[in-house]
Simulated assay, not measured.
Amino acid sequence: MDIHTDEDHDIERIARTTKVVAMVGLSPNEDRPSWGVARYLQACGMRVIPVNPGQAGHTILGETVYADLAAIPKDAGVQMVDVFRRSDAVAAIVDQALAELPDLQVIWTQLGVRDDAAADRARARGVSVIQDRCPKIEFPRFL
């Protein structure tokens, strides 16, 4: 069975094994969905590294914010990139993640966000892809 065709199996594996997430588009505003998802992931024991060029150098939820994925230290161990950006930004984010994150295992795009061509590029490199879903909604089924 191709693991990429069994999305629930992928989501369960991701929920149980992911320890470090880079969240692209994480807002410092507690009222924004990205903040709530990041806080939930932290409550699940995951480290969430914020990526937001407008907040670079500040902190969100106790973590230093980076301008982009390339700025995150290579030894940070980022396994998953969670994308809180519009669909038209996904391709560049995926390409940068593939080039810059040696421990990358998962690309996750939030509700309403997808880029099938970028997803295909990531899968061709052995990276799991979940699109148009939210880990805060999906993970409780498995944790």
Rank of each mutant, 00 (worst) to 15 (best):
residue 51 V to K: 03
residue 88 D to H: 13
residue 81 V to G: 05
residue 21 V to H: 05
residue 51 V to Y: 01
residue 60 I to N: 06
residue 116 D to H: 14
residue 15 A to D: 05
residue 8 D to Q: 14
residue 135 P to H: 10
residue 106 V to T: 13
residue 116 D to F: 00
residue 98 L to I: 15
residue 106 V to L: 08
residue 55 Q to A: 13
residue 58 H to E: 15
residue 15 A to Q: 08
residue 33 P to A: 05
residue 94 V to Y: 11
residue 62 G to Q: 14
residue 114 R to N: 11
residue 24 V to R: 06
residue 31 D to R: 14
residue 129 V to R: 02
residue 65 V to Y: 01
residue 28 P to H: 15
residue 56 A to F: 03
residue 49 I to T: 11
residue 35 W to V: 05
residue 136 K to V: 03
residue 131 Q to G: 06
residue 95 D to V: 06
residue 35 W to T: 02
residue 102 P to A: 06
residue 136 K to P: 01
residue 116 D to V: 14
residue 9 H to T: 15
residue 69 L to R: 10
residue 6 D to T: 13
residue 25 G to E: 12
residue 92 A to H: 07
residue 80 M to K: 10
residue 98 L to S: 12
residue 117 A to F: 00
residue 73 P to F: 07
residue 110 Q to R: 13
residue 48 V to N: 01
residue 95 D to H: 07
residue 135 P to G: 06
residue 67 A to I: 03
residue 42 Q to P: 06
residue 11 I to L: 11
residue 22 A to D: 08
residue 71 A to Y: 01
residue 22 A to I: 08
residue 102 P to Q: 12
residue 107 I to K: 06
residue 108 W to L: 10
residue 34 S to F: 08
residue 141 R to V: 02
residue 122 A to H: 09
residue 132 D to G: 09
residue 47 R to T: 15
residue 56 A to V: 09
residue 122 A to N: 08
residue 90 V to I: 14
residue 31 D to E: 15
residue 112 G to R: 10
residue 124 A to R: 12
residue 132 D to Q: 10
residue 20 V to C: 09
residue 92 A to Y: 07
residue 23 M to I: 05
residue 3 I to S: 12
residue 52 N to P: 02
residue 128 S to Q: 12
residue 63 E to R: 03
residue 125 R to D: 08
residue 103 D to S: 09
residue 71 A to T: 03
residue 95 D to P: 02
residue 12 E to L: 10
residue 45 G to N: 04
residue 102 P to K: 12
residue 93 I to N: 08
residue 76 A to K: 14
residue 40 Y to T: 04
residue 108 W to S: 10
residue 60 I to E: 04
residue 111 L to Y: 10
residue 9 H to D: 12
residue 93 I to E: 09
residue 120 D to L: 12
residue 139 F to M: 10
residue 102 P to R: 13
residue 79 Q to F: 00
residue 59 T to H: 11
residue 13 R to N: 01
residue 126 G to K: 15
residue 84 F to Q: 11
residue 131 Q to R: 08
residue 92 A to D: 15
residue 61 L to S: 01
residue 64 T to N: 04
residue 4 H to N: 15
residue 37 V to M: 06
residue 113 V to R: 04
residue 32 R to V: 04
residue 16 R to C: 03
residue 43 A to G: 10
residue 121 R to G: 06
residue 90 V to F: 02
residue 131 Q to H: 05
